[in-house]
């Protein structure tokens, strides 16, 4: 989880990732941010994120992203 927060801060450090729950819906992360995030996540956690995972629900909060990462690691 700390690794994740570090990656997120790297993209945009003006957000309180502990609280924010509308990263996508509130357009805090734009689509390029999401792409950057995806490639960072893949590298850092050794997972493959496919188009199917590209939903707002998966990216709206740090918690949701973390949940997705863990789910993908288990597969």
């Amino acid at each position: 989880m700390e690794d994740l927060i570090r990656i997120l801060r790297d993209i945009d450090d003006s957000v309180d990732y502990g609280k924010e729950t509308a990263l996508i819906d509130g357009q805090i992360l734009d689509s390029f941010g999401v792409i950057t995030l995806v490639s960072e996540l893949e590298e850092a956690f050794g997972i493959t994120i496919e188009a199917a995972e590209m939903t707002p629900q998966n990216f709206n909060s740090a918690e949701a992203i973390w949940a997705m990462v863990k789910r993908l690691q288990e597969n």
């Binding site: 689509s31 792409i35 950057t36 995806v38 893949e42 590298e43 496919e50 188009a51 590209m54």
Partner: peptide, 15 residues
């Protein structure tokens, strides 16, 4: 947009 941006070739370029 998303399918292309998470496709293998774009990801490899990204890295």
């Amino acid at each position: 947009f998303y399918p292309v941006s998470v496709s293998g070739i774009v990801k490899r370029w990204n890295q």
